[in-house]
């Protein structure tokens, strides 16, 4: 028996598919960057000691870069979703942000 979700949110299929596609695309991009980082550390650890710029090595630049890229991709995802929500003018977009 399908008892369904506890709370119903009305978002059209087009919006749901768009968000899912955008999220998965960014997820795979980030997973690739993260995977390369783990691979480099595991297979070519000495490469991580190479100084890249400003006296900082690849390990530090890549590590901090991974954190910054996560933030940037997050903002990009929100921009894409918000733009689409406004365009489709769903009930969700009207109520987003909530209240206290």
């Amino acid at each position: 028996m399908d008892h369904g979700p506890a709370v119903e949110y009305h978002e059209c299929d087009e919006l749901l598919k768009y968000k899912q596609k955008a999220g998965l695309r960014l997820f795979f991009i980030y997973s690739g960057i993260y995977g390369v980082f783990v691979l480099l550390n595991t297979v070519f650890p000495s490469m991580m000691e190479s100084v890249i710029f400003f006296g900082l090595n690849l390990a530090i630049v890549y590590g901090i870069g991974l954190i910054l890229i996560a933030i940037i991709l997050g903002l990009l995802y929100n921009y894409q979703c918000t733009k689409m929500e406004k365009r489709l003018d769903t009930s969700s977009s009207k109520t987003q942000g909530g209240s206290e």
Binding site: Y9, T95, Q96
Partner: peptide, 8 residues
């Protein structure tokens, strides 16, 4: 309150 708020 909403999925969009969860995302934000």
């Amino acid at each position: 309150p909403t999925p969009a708020a969860a995302r934000k």
